[in-house]
Amino acid sequence: MGQSPTPSRPDIHATKPVPVRHPARWIGGAALFLFVFFFIRLLVTNENLQWPVVAHYMLSPEILKGLGRTLLLTFLAMIFGLAIGIVLAIMRLSSNPVFQAASWLWIWFFRGVPPLVQLVFWYNLALLIPNVSIGIPFGPQLWEGSTNLLITPFTAAILGLSLTESAYAAEMIRAGIQAINIGQTEAAATLGMTRAQILRRIILPQALRILIPPIGNDTISMLKFTSLVSVLALPDLLYSAQMIYSRTYQTIPLLIVATIWYLILSTVLTFAEHYIEHRLNGRPLALGAVFNSLFKSRFWSLRRQEARS
């Protein structure tokens, strides 16, 4: 036979092979599609959801005010949490054993105590320490006041949420700093840079790039954690909804209102995180690219280009 083609077959060079079929994908897809269909039908047809009520309250001033408070809490808790976290991470990596131990203890405590317990605890701080003063230790006092004046539901919420976040952020930032090659420090040192300059100009900017995805993740977690402040009767998004349904007994529709807002906010945050990530990686920013990166399979892409982009 040799290399001569079988007479009935076309030339291999002129023929495109039939692509591999994926019957399992089609069956799996169809099953899920069916499931989604029934779920949507339930959402649409179930009268108890009371969609008109949901629509009525979506943009009500009370809900929007709660929404604003939720955003403010998320924002402030993240800012304070990250700021304290950076300090803790640097303490943890310092060569001073007292700093290391203090940082370790802080992280151990605030990661170990549930945020809900902390919120209640901070709110009741006055029972433990009735008066707070600012002054020189063993010296004159500059300011003194009642703890009850200082600890409002809002400050208690910020304390509880940001201290919890600081413990998680510290571990995350420490990992980010340690991920930077020692060669970067050495190169900067041989250029005559001081410790602080190396940290501020070389290490932290690189670590922050690595940390954008986990910080985004934490921000979304924080958005949801803020709903815990309803125990302090602080009217955030959830508590505002609760206040309304305790008057109107429209429990499910108002929970749906809160749910939809939480989903909208976390979606926006997800996009924001991907946007920042793209910007910092110096890629041209196209919404399509950001959108694609949300859905890309990281497991199955064998094509290198796809895996990289």
């Binding site: 190169a187 040192a189 041989t190 005559g192 840079m193 001081t194 690189q206």
Partner: peptide, 23 residues
Amino acid sequence: FNELAVQRQRMGMVFQSFNLFPH
């Protein structure tokens, strides 16, 4: 370290792995 930094200004160093600042 910071006193050494002053002396190190006078000795440039080039590394096997370049160690450029990637950002």
